Simulated scan of single mutants.
Amino acid sequence: MTEAVHPRSVIPADRIRQVVVLVSLVLALAGAAVGSGAFGGTPIQNASDGALSADATPIAPAVPAFSIWSVIYLGLAACAVWQALPGRAADPRQRVLGYPVAASLLLNAAWILSVQAGLLALSVVVIAALLAVLAFAFAVCVRTRGKGWVEAVLVDGVIGLYLGWVCVATAANISAVLVAAGFTGWGVPADLWAVVVVGVAGAVGVALAMAGRGRIAPSLSLCWGLVWLGVARLNGEPHSVPAATSAFITVAIVILATILCRAAAVTRSRRS
Rank of each mutant, 00 (worst) to 15 (best):
F138R: 05
L85A: 13
G185C: 10
W111I: 07
S240Y: 03
G185E: 11
I112Q: 05
A201G: 15
G75K: 01
A32V: 01
R8E: 00
A28G: 09
I112L: 13
N46I: 12
F136M: 15
L22H: 07
T184I: 00
D55A: 10
S221G: 05
N235C: 11
A80D: 01
L85Q: 12
A171F: 08
A121V: 10
G182D: 04
V63Y: 04
A181M: 12
G164Y: 00
I174F: 07
I11T: 00
V133N: 02
L208P: 07
A181K: 12
V5I: 15
A109L: 13
T245I: 08
A129S: 08
S67A: 15
S67H: 13
I255L: 13
V5E: 14
A247V: 06
A65V: 06
V227E: 14
G164L: 01
Y162N: 08
H6T: 14
L154P: 01
A194E: 10
G164T: 02
G40Y: 09
N46M: 15
D191V: 03
V227P: 09
H239R: 14
A257M: 10
V153Y: 07
W149K: 15
A211E: 09
L52D: 06
F39Q: 13
A264W: 09
I259H: 09
M1Y: 05
C223Y: 10
G230L: 04
A32F: 02
Q116H: 15
V166C: 14
A121R: 11
I159R: 02
L222H: 13
T42L: 10
P61Q: 08
G187R: 13
M210W: 13
T258D: 05
H6L: 12
A190D: 08
L161A: 07
Q94G: 13
I16K: 13
P86E: 03
V158H: 06
R145C: 10
L107M: 03
